[in-house]
Simulated scan of single mutants.
Amino acid sequence: MAKLSTSKKNAEPKGEFGLPEERKYPMPDAAHAKNAKARASQAENAGKLSAADKKKVDSKADKVLKKK
């Protein structure tokens, strides 16, 4: 997975994020989508992400993964 620099992350449209309102969990490609799912699971298990937000991230990631 290529590293997503801050400038590239800031240049991504909001629709490329699992949580667009917070610009968290960027998913410009399949590798980032897989990583977002894993990180969202970790955050939920640690109590830092709600189940509803994890569902949003997973839904967006699944759409990205089906495209590629």
Rank of each mutant, 00 (worst) to 15 (best):
T6M: 11
K8E: 15
N35A: 15
K8S: 07
A30F: 08
K34E: 14
D53Q: 14
K34V: 02
N45G: 13
N45R: 14
K56W: 08
G18K: 03
S59N: 10
M27F: 00
K56I: 06
P28Y: 06
K8V: 04
K54W: 01
H32A: 13
P20L: 00
K67L: 12
E22V: 02
K3D: 11
A30Q: 12
Q42K: 12
Q42N: 10
F17Q: 04
K48Q: 12
L49C: 07
K56Q: 13
A31C: 07
A52F: 08
K56E: 12
H32F: 14
A31E: 14
K14Q: 06
D58F: 13
P20I: 02
S5Y: 02
E21K: 12
A11W: 08
K67Q: 13
A30H: 13
A31H: 07
L4S: 13
A52G: 04
K55I: 06
K24H: 08
D29P: 05
L4W: 15
A31Q: 11
G47V: 09
L19F: 04
K8M: 07
K48P: 06
K14T: 07
A61W: 13
K9R: 15
F17G: 01
P13V: 01
A40K: 03
A51F: 03
K37M: 15
L49F: 06
E21P: 03
Q42M: 07
E12P: 02
P26L: 03
K55D: 11
V57P: 02
E12C: 11
A2L: 13
V57K: 03
R39V: 14
A46D: 12
K24Q: 10
V64D: 06
L65E: 05
K14V: 06
D53R: 10
N10G: 09
S50K: 05
S7G: 07
P20F: 02
K34L: 11
L4N: 15
A46Q: 11
L49A: 06
M27Q: 04
K37N: 06
E22P: 01
K56N: 11
A30T: 09
D58E: 13
T6S: 14
D62P: 09
E44G: 03
K54A: 04
L19W: 01
S59T: 14
M27P: 00
L4H: 13
E21A: 09
E22R: 06
K56G: 05
R23F: 09
P20S: 00
S7H: 14
P20V: 01
K14R: 12
R39W: 11
K48V: 09
Q42P: 02
A33P: 00
